[in-house]
Design a protein around this nucleic acid. Structure first.
Lengths: 240, 240
DNA sequence: ACCTGAACACCGTTCAAGT
DNA sequence: ACCTGAACACCGTTCAAGT
């Protein structure tokens, strides 16, 4: 690591090198461990050197998002709006899955960069060229929300949750937990039980994230399609 | 403030007092300024005293979420599932609007507490008692995502965005910005223009957050209803 | 003019010394 | 046994002193 840092030291720092190093570091150690100081160390540079290429940490995070937005492929041309949107969302999802830190960062971003605006503009463009009214496109963009980036706000968070502990927890304790669950949260228990059964395994959460994502995505897209065909307008309920 | 802290000093600290003080503090100064040290100071107590009632900051945040989950009213009894869900979401939304810090905290929470599980269980219960299959309820819960808590993941983030700056930016600079926007992000520009027109004002972002939220919510609920009436099942695409 | 070490004003949390 | 001051190992960022 010090050798690599030493070698990297020779070629001069620039914004791109800072940003891609930050992306790699966040991929490796997680966003909570990404600090200016640690990033500088990884680049074989004094912390203050970073501030020549990035105003502060906020701007660093914004630049990191820009970097991975660049990884999302361009929209497929000449496709009907529905499949165009679907493909673009799913390709964004692939990128976001490669960079798990991006979800919380995008969610908390406050200054939208041109690259992000460009992605959103292209997104709106797919609906507009698909014949959607500007009005409907507006609301549809809001309804997409974070799903535009290929992620859902998971409230269960199966990844870090009970699933991982299962391996270590002894069987009898697990049974006790299950009974507690059944007593206190009967509805969730039912759902979990059926999901686990469908999954064919006893351990694990029984949720196929990709399936859940596409379920919700298609539900929305079908809804959009229906409104579009009905020439829906926002009517008088809105504004003053 | 010191007087108040002095007075509060007498009555002994307990978990509830710590948690509600944290909620009030986060409401006032924002979540990014909520530190263990500052919270202790506000309570007229040495920082280490907090650790008697809360294991660490993570647990503090979890407890804060529990506190405001308690502010969400109980589900209305004997209502059809659709309006029951709708009302509960909108009442959760009112609570979350009072505590803006809660959104990012809920989003990044990793250990789900019993109170949160209880809320989710009640939520699932509305669909199940409404006649939904366990299978459909499962996927519907995922599709709800953070909308269960009454918030959407906004990607625009109008609140802190360009809207607030408008007041200070001179008219000619604003016109230049608008032209830049029209050139670089034509689709977004169209949407913003129509929204501003509907809003009846030139400044402002022209987005009625409540309208946007309900638009997406109703789109989902209508989709759920349709699937339910069709006796939808997840079929063979899922699991192995 | 550029670079950078030391310093500032914070964090969350541990731990040993006090009562 | 309980409480707490000092300390530890960090932060992001400012700023003045060095080249």
């Amino acid at each position: 690591m010090t050798l690599l840092a030493e070698a990297a030291r020779r070629i001069p720092l620039n914004r791109d090198r800072v940003l891609s190093a930050a992306v790699v570091l966040a991929d490796e150690v997680g966003i909570e461990s990404l600090s200016m100081r640690r990033l500088a160390q990884e680049l074989g540079v004094v912390p203050m050197a970073l501030y020549k290429h990035v105003a502060n940490k906020e701007e660093l995070l914004g630049g990191m998002v820009d970097t991975i937005v660049g990884e999302i492929g361009p929209p497929v041309p000449d496709a009907p709006w529905k499949s165009a949107v679907r493909l673009r969302v799913l390709s964004a999802r692939q990128v976001l899955l490669r960079h798990p830190w991006a979800r919380p960062v995008i969610e908390t971003r406050t200054n939208v960069t041109p690259a992000v605006l460009g992605y959103m503009d292209g997104f709106a463009g797919m609906f507009l060229t698909g014949g959607f009214s500007v009005d409907l496109t507006h609301h549809v963009m809001h309804a997409m929300g974070s799903r535009m980036w290929g992620f859902t706000q998971e409230v269960f968070d199966d990844s870090a949750g009970a699933g991982n502990q299962h391996a270590q927890v002894p069987a009898d304790a697990r049974a006790a937990m299950a009974q507690q669950m059944a007593e206190n949260f009967p509805h969730l228990f039912k759902i979990a039980a059926v999901a686990a059964h469908e999954d064919g395994s006893v351990v694990g959460n029984g949720c196929d994230d990709q399936y859940e994502f596409e379920f919700a995505l298609d539900l929305l897209l079908d809804g959009f399609e229906r409104l579009h065909q009905q020439n829906w307008t926002s009517g008088g309920g809105k504004g003053k």
